[in-house]
Design a protein around this nucleic acid. Structure first.
Lengths: 262, 262
DNA sequence: TAAAAATGTCCATGTTCATGGACAAATAGG
DNA sequence: CCTATTTGTCCATGAACATGGACATTTTTA
């Protein structure tokens, strides 16, 4: 069950993240087509808790830095290593496509970090975006590093739905894809969940946590050279996480021959 | 009216900021003594919106970095200048007391930035904390820089309540205090709103926005030398914002003779 | 300065969702 | 492997709050 008032808090937070300036309750009510009185209650609650304030009387409310201070505390607890961020920036530069780090969340994966592509036509991902675990390159990369019992339990709960031509439709199909991908050294998907989207992913294991390092873009642009991208990703991992990274941390994964890097 | 479910979202966010590790819905329910089913609905809503995720199955949920990314966008829009942060760090160091920046929010002030004192007994403030505008050093410092019409409108809406011995109980009293404080060069309060608390504040005007720069601590420690603290604050402002800062930006304020600083 | 418009506040009522108990599934313990 | 315990899901009912209309206040326009 979706709790409406909870959703509204999130809507409001996203609203301010886009708008970047104070807004009146009336404006907010108009924007979302919410009843004015409900909007006032919502705003008032956030004000009393110190999450919104009114910088100038009657000029509107704006979120306080309290959001930032809590979010920083929360994210400080499970940070991605700085090398990973460098790796992402590097590959965003090299490939020009959207790159990101995802982690498992139940039967889905969530983006924990995203660098959007500079192309006008590109894969639109954002931190918090979710994808099904079984039908995406990222998801399969993550599954490939989980203990088999856990994989089995997750796949049992999966509801198979045909999102596109490439969607795998059975547990066996997924297990085969994972095995082949491990053997090949990289995971891919093509119109498996998102139409016209191609994704290339490799698993990363950091402090015992499993992630996927993912590059994704329109199929027409990357469909023909996913192998090149995979190679670039392996080289990136080698440069930023060390030449032995896969050997020591993701030993099941075939290691593409890496040209450069000491 | 306080919307309960909105409050609960905030409670949960604060819960994770303290806890810093994943929690099961059951644990959350136990911690807050919320019914389990309500807790599940709340968690589920946040999960579906990409604000919580489940790093490992059955090991609990944790907030995604989406909070951070939105909070950063929001706070990037109205940042405090870096000099102000340096000023705060400097005075936290010099005075050893809790220092902060506050801004007006209706008839209250909110803390936008806080550096907590290192003393075990100290003033406990946090970003988002609110105080009444009329009965605190911070609030009066801010009022002192507002156009008189706005001050009048705010004070008209003020409900006078005796919080402590020092609480001003009439509009005239407040106006007198403000006038005297401007003339003296700093604002103070002693057990005016918070029992046993002493505060010293000076107004800052940055890009047309009015703030208060505040140092506060237990009266027994600072009651006898608020003038020294005020002097240190003036010197800090002079060092970090420039020797002419008050003259050019807060001209109504008497400027304490500043020893050092070019 | 008066009238109009917009914004903010209040309130009775109906809808939504929180509640807690009952059931199912998963995990831990014997 | 069976039992006990914990965790998660489902559901009917009653309480909390969203709704929208009416009123008050403030701001804008004439």
């Amino acid at each position: 069950m979706i709790v409406k008032q909870v959703s509204q808090v999130l809507d409001l937070l996203e609203f301010f993240a886009h708008r970047r300036e104070p807004a009146n309750p009336s404006e907010i009510a108009r924007h979302f087509a919410w009843p004015r009185s409900s909007t006032f209650n919502l705003v008032q609650t956030l004000v009393e808790r110190g999450y919104l304030y009114e910088p100038k009387p009657r000029q509107g409310y704006y979120p306080t830095p309290r959001w930032l201070s809590l979010a920083q505390e929360i994210s400080a607890a499970e940070p991605l290593p700085e090398e990973v961020n460098r790796l992402l920036r590097d590959l965003a530069e090299i490939t020009g496509e959207t790159v990101g780090i995802t982690a498992a969340s139940g039967t889905h994966v969530v983006f924990l970090e995203v660098i959007p592509s500079r192309h006008p036509i590109a894969y639109q991902a954002y931190v918090g975006k979710q994808l099904p675990l079984h039908a995406t390159a990222s998801g399969q990369a993550i599954l490939s590093q989980m203990p088999p019992s856990q994989v089995a339990s997750l796949l049992r709960r999966t509801v198979f739905e045909r999102y596109g031509e490439g969607t795998p439709m059975s547990i066996e199909e997924i297990e085969t894809q994972i095995k082949q991908s491990l053997h090949r050294g990289w995971f891919s998907s093509a119109s498996a969940y998102t139409q016209d989207l191609g994704g290339v992913a490799v698993p990363l294991v950091l402090n015992g946590r499993i992630f996927s390092f993912t590059v994704a873009g329109p199929l027409f642009r990357i469909g023909n050279h996913m192998d090149v991208i995979a190679r670039q990703m392996h080289e990136g991992v080698s440069r930023h996480l060390g030449p032995d990274y896969f050997a020591t941390h993701v030993p099941n994964l075939y290691r593409l021959p890496v040209g450069s890097a000491s």
